[in-house]
Design a protein around this nucleic acid. Structure first.
Length: 151
DNA sequence: GCCAACGTTGGC
DNA sequence: GCCAACGTTGGC
């Protein structure tokens, strides 16, 4: 089992949106490293720390899980009307792959980025490093367990 | 809204 | 294949 942190802007798709929808296609990722994690490493049952970014109080707000064992093409890359449209992608040779993410729980209180940086047991997490803007990051089990303790 | 850090693009 | 220019991310 692997552990991940996935960023989402709450204005675009928040933990409450996920709670309402129960599951979602993780569409719109246009970064190769992040794509490769979804395509090559994610497995059904992997746990996901749901992170709100680009907002007033960035931080981990809940828990999700990976629902698919095999990544599949992100449909938005073929949609000319989508912000995520990629003219270089074709159905035969899709460039962007995604997985489905399911809702598990929303934390009673958010674990803010600030508190992660201040916690010596958590401040080595990738998300706390300067300039780290990858939207999908692997998480150490020890870090994951600590977050669950704090939630 | 600013801007540092980073990733991607494209000319050469 | 280098690297300058550009675009994006995301904390603050």
């Amino acid at each position: 089992m692997n552990y991940w942190l996935m960023k989402s802007e709450p204005d675009v798709f928040s933990i409450d949106d996920l709670k309402k929808k129960k599951r979602t296609m993780w569409e719109g990722v246009r970064n190769y490293q992040a794509r490769n994690f979804m395509r090559d490493a994610m497995k059904k049952g992997d746990k996901v720390l749901y992170y709100h970014s680009n907002c007033k109080e960035p931080g981990i707000v809940g828990l999700g899980e990976i629902l698919t064992d095999t990544a599949y093409p992100d449909p938005t890359q073929f949609d000319e009307n989508s912000n995520y449209f990629d003219p270089k992608a074709t159905k035969e040779k899709p460039r962007w792959m995604l997985v489905d993410v399911g809702f598990v729980e929303k934390f009673d209180h958010e674990i803010s980025l600030k508190s992660i940086k201040e916690n010596p047991e958590l401040n080595s997490m990738k998300v706390a490093q300067k300039g780290m803007r990858l939207s999908i990051q692997p998480v150490d089990k020890s870090h994951f367990d600590k977050i669950i303790q704090l939630k």
